[in-house]
């Protein structure tokens, strides 16, 4: 099982670290012929080379070299397992980033709407409280004046009357400001809460984006593996079985054409 895993992992590692090029690039560099070695063959050679080197360098018998090779295999697999974990973490970070972006967008919108609402509400509260206060003030002043009118005729009371009116007015203004501040504070708390949430999410988003940038810098995000063919190929005219293959390829195409055109027109649907 480990052997199979190792072969598979070696293949993946070879693909990941191999240099990619195209026949056109090679031609431009003046290369006319290339030797092609299959991945299986390379993997086999690497395994055998490791085993022989261990046996020769450390004067180990087959069993000793085998034990060392098994240990090395295990370490190699652990390293690759770690890479797999990193890839899993990258996918998770990518998913998290998308979720966070969506949350931040929603919250930013909500914050904007709330702040606009808050501004309007503030104005409304201010106007209401002020109007109410003015009314209360006028009522109170009138009540006090009425009271004092009952005391008219007594010369020593005129000064007192003005002082009482002034004092009560100041009190009313103070009460008005307190009520206004309390109302504003309640609305501000919600805005503050939203701001804190946006800040927290923005920070998480930044971390997720940084993690993704790191993966990209380390070459973890692959753009895919290029095909060795730049253009559409086809059967080589020098193929020894050219005629026969040409005929069977045509048959395959025709049966597929019939099948697929049937799908498109619905002819073959039950």
């Amino acid at each position: 099982m480990k052997g199979k895993e190792l072969k598979q992992s070696l293949k993946e590692a070879l693909r990941r670290f191999s240099f990619r090029t195209t026949p056109d690039d090679l031609k431009r560099r003046g290369v006319e012929n290339v030797h092609v070695v299959g991945l299986d063959r390379i993997v086999g050679l690497v395994e055998e080379a490791v085993r022989r080197t261990l046996a020769r360098s450390f004067h180990l018998g087959n069993q000793g070299a085998g034990t060392l090779a098994a240990g090395a295999k295990e370490e190699f697999l652990k390293l690759l397992e770690r890479t797999k974990d990193l890839e899993k973490a990258r996918d998770e970070a990518e998913r998290m980033r998308k979720e966070l972006e969506a949350q931040v967008d929603t919250l930013r919108l909500r914050l904007k709407e709330t702040e606009a609402g808050l501004h309007k509400e503030r104005q409304r509260i201010k106007e209401t409280v002020e109007a109410q206060a003015l009314l209360e003030e006028a009522k109170l002043a009138e009540a006090i004046r009425t009271l004092f009118r009952t005391w008219e005729g007594r010369e020593d009371l005129s000064l007192l009357r003005e002082e009482v009116v002034g004092l009560v007015s100041a009190h009313v203004v103070q009460e008005k400001n307190k009520a206004l501040a309390a109302a504003m504070e309640e609305r501000d708390e919600e805005a503050q809460r939203l701001r804190r949430r946006v800040a927290k999410l923005a920070s998480s988003l930044e971390k997720a984006e940084e993690a993704l940038r790191n993966y990209a810098r380390n070459g973890q995000i692959d753009q895919g593996i290029s095909s060795v063919f730049r253009t559409i190929q086809g059967l080589s005219p020098v193929d020894p079985e050219y005629k026969r293959k040409k005929d069977v390829l045509k048959d395959i195409f025709l049966s597929n054409l019939k099948l697929q055109k049937g799908i498109e027109t619905g002819e073959q649907k039950p």
Binding site: I232, G234, L235, S236, L249, I252, F253, L257
Partner: peptide, 14 residues
């Protein structure tokens, strides 16, 4: 191998 050998115009038609 069949995919590689298949002429381009066949692919186009499908």
């Amino acid at each position: 191998k069949i995919a590689h050998d298949m002429p381009g115009e066949y692919w186009q038609q499908l």
